[in-house]
């Protein structure tokens, strides 16, 4: 249950890419930060919803998958820079490993991320697909 609770607290960021933004320096933080490391005490942090469109910065193709992900291998893990400037590490789906390219435009989709075995909680959240 600890895992389920840990996930539950992060639902806004996992489902809807809710991060934070410092309105003093305009820097966007995802996952959200509650103190701006640039402005420190002069910073003004507010909630900020990323629009889910971005660009693939780099990636790796996973052939030896960890437990629970075996049936998805080979799959792509990438770093995506979002329009707000924040970077997220995420799975790139609906994309053949031979078609993936650094710099390609991608967008957020809602997918099953993991599950606690056959009887446990199913965790949902963002992944990214090539923009079509």
């Amino acid at each position: 249950m600890a895992a389920a609770a840990r996930f539950w607290r992060k639902i806004p960021q996992r489902y809807n890419l809710i991060g934070t933004k410092c309105s003093a320096c305009n820097k966007v933080y995802f996952p959200p930060r509650y103190i701006c490391p640039v402005c420190r005490r002069a910073g003004k942090i507010e909630e900020f919803k990323l629009d889910g469109k971005g660009e693939l910065v780099t990636y790796a193709v996973i052939y030896i998958a960890p437990r629970g992900f075996e049936s998805q291998a080979p799959y792509i893990i990438g770093i995506v820079e979002l329009d707000g400037g924040a970077r997220v590490t995420t799975q790139i789906v609906d994309c053949d490993p031979k078609d993936v390219e650094i710099g390609m435009p991608v967008k957020a989709v809602f997918r099953k991320v993991n599950e606690d075995g056959e009887s446990g909680v199913i965790y949902y959240g963002y992944k990214f697909t090539p923009m079509r």
């Binding site: 998805q72 809602f110 099953k112 992944k127």
Partner: peptide, 16 residues
């Protein structure tokens, strides 16, 4: 469906 798609993910995409 892809290996990470189910009725909930399809419903969310359609509803969005």
């Amino acid at each position: 469906p892809g290996p990470d798609e189910d009725t909930i993910t399809i419903s969310v995409e359609a509803a969005r």
